[in-house]
C-alpha cells in the first residue's frame, strides 16, 4: 500500500493541486475547464510519449518540438487554400497527413542514423536537428503564418464530440493506454527497458539494440508530426514558432512522472499524471485572478516543487524498501 502510494505520488500531487486550485477558485470546478485541461494536455502528452520511448532506451529526443513545428508548417503550407501564403498546391488533406507523418518518421531516421551509425551524442544530434528544422521552416513559409486550412484537415484538432469533448482528447488518452500496453506487453517495449538499463547486456543477450533505438526515434518523430496535425487543426493556423520551448515541459512531465533520464526506468502512466499536472497548473493559472506578474514565477515554482516532490517520494520508497527509518 505504502509502495503503491509512493509509486503513484504524481497522481496524488495532481489530486491535491487540483483541490487547492479549486478551493481558491471554485469556477475551476466545471466540466468545461476539466476538458480544457485535457485538451491543453493533448499536444504535450503526445510529445511526451515519443520522448519516453527514447528516454527508456537511454536516449534523448530534443528535436520533437521542432519536428512538430516543421511538419505543422510544411503540412499547412501544402494544404492551405490561401492564394498568397500557401504553396498554392492545395494538396488533398489525406495525402498531406501521410506526408507529415512521413517527414516525422524521416526526422527520426536521420536522428538515429547520426546517433547509431555515426555514434554522435544524442543530445547534440537532436539539438542540431532542432535548430536545423527551425531554420528549414523559413524555406517553406517565408516566416508567414499559414492559415485557411481545409475543415477536413483541421478536424482532428478542432472537432469536438457534441461540441464538448474534443477528439484530440480521446486520441491522446488512447495513445497513452496503447503505448503503456506496448511497454508492458510487447517485446519492443521490454527491449527498450533492457537497452536503457544496460545497453551492452541487452546487446549480448541478442536484442537488436540499433533497430529498437531506430524504432523509438521514428515513433518519436511520427508522434511529433501527429501532434503537429492536432495543433494545426486546433489553432486553424500555424506560425513559425509553433511548439517552441515545449521540450522543457516534455522533460518536466517525464521527470515528474518518474521516468529516469538515465534510461531504463519509467512508465507511461506516471508521465500522464505529470502532463495533466502541468495542464492543471497552466489552465488553473489562466483562470485564477492572479496578477500577471506572478504567473511565470508561480508556474516555475510549482513545476520545480513537483520535480522535487518526485525525488522525495523516490527517497522515501528506497527507505521503505530497505526498512531504514
Amino acid at each position: 500500500m505504502t509502495r503503491f502510494l509512493l509509486r503513484n505520488a504524481v497522481w496524488i500531487v495532481l489530486l491535491f493541486t487540483t483541490i487547492a486550485f479549486v478551493a481558491v477558485e471554485p469556477r475551476l470546478l466545471s466540466v468545461r475547464i476539466f476538458i480544457n485541461v485535457l485538451e491543453h494536455s493533448s499536444i504535450l502528452g503526445i510529445l511526451v510519449i515519443g520522448m519516453i520511448f527514447c528516454l527508456l532506451a537511454g536516449r534523448f529526443d530534443l528535436s520533437s518540438e521542432s519536428t512538430l513545428g516543421f511538419t505543422a508548417l510544411v503540412g499547412a503550407w501544402m494544404v492551405s487554400t490561401n492564394p498568397f501564403f500557401g504553396s498554392g498546391w492545395q494538396l488533398p488533406p489525406a495525402l498531406v497527413i501521410v506526408l507529415m507523418l512521413g517527414m516525422g518518421a524521416g526526422v527520426g531516421c536521420l536522428n538515429s542514423f547520426f546517433i547509431i551509425k555515426l555514434r554522435v551524442n544524442a543530445f547534440i544530434v537532436t539539438l542540431a536537428m532542432l535548430l536545423a528544422l527551425r531554420g528549414f521552416t523559413y524555406v517553406f513559409t517565408n516566416a508567414n503564418t499559414m492559415y485557411d486550412l481545409p475543415p477536413s484537415f483541421a478536424a482532428l484538432g478542432g472537432y469536438s464530440i457534441g461540441g464538448l469533448l474534443p477528439i484530440s482528447v480521446i486520441l491522446f488518452l488512447s495513445l497513452f493506454v496503447v503505448s503503456q500496453f506496448v511497454l508492458s506487453y510487447t517485446t519492443f517495449g521490454r527491449d527498450l527497458y533492457a537497452i536503457g538499463g544496460n545497453r551492452e547486456a541487452a546487446f549480448a543477450a541478442g536484442i537488436r539494440v540499433d533497430r529498437r533505438t531506430l524504432t523509438a526515434f521514428v515513433l518519436s518523430g511520427m508522434l511529433g508530426a501527429l501532434a503537429a496535425w492536432v495543433l494545426a487543426g486546433r489553432l486553424q493556423a500555424v506560425t513559425i514558432n509553433l511548439g517552441q520551448g515545449m521540450v522543457f515541459e516534455v522533460f518536466a512531465a517525464a521527470v515528474i512522472g518518474g521516468v529516469s533520464l538515465a534510461g531504463g526506468k519509467g512508465t507511461m502512466m506516471g508521465p500522464l499524471g505529470g502532463v495533466l499536472l502541468l495542464g492543471v497548473i497552466t489552465t488553473g493559472l489562466s483562470v485564477m485572478p492572479i496578477s500577471s506578474f506572478w504567473v511565470d514565477a508561480v508556474r516555475g515554482v510549482l513545476i520545480l516543487a513537483a520535480v522535487v516532490l518526485w525525488r522525495v517520494t523516490e527517497i522515501f520508497e528506497e527507505r521503505w524498501r530497505t526498512g531504514t527509518p
Partner: peptide
C-alpha cells in the same frame, strides 16, 4: 481580465479558451 502570454499561439488559444469557458 488581464492575462500574460509569451507570444505563442498555444497560449493565445489556451488562455482564451479557459477564460471564455469560465
Amino acid at each position: 481580465i488581464r492575462k500574460l502570454q509569451h507570444w505563442t499561439p498555444e497560449e493565445f488559444f489556451d488562455i482564451t479558451k479557459s477564460v471564455a469557458s469560465a
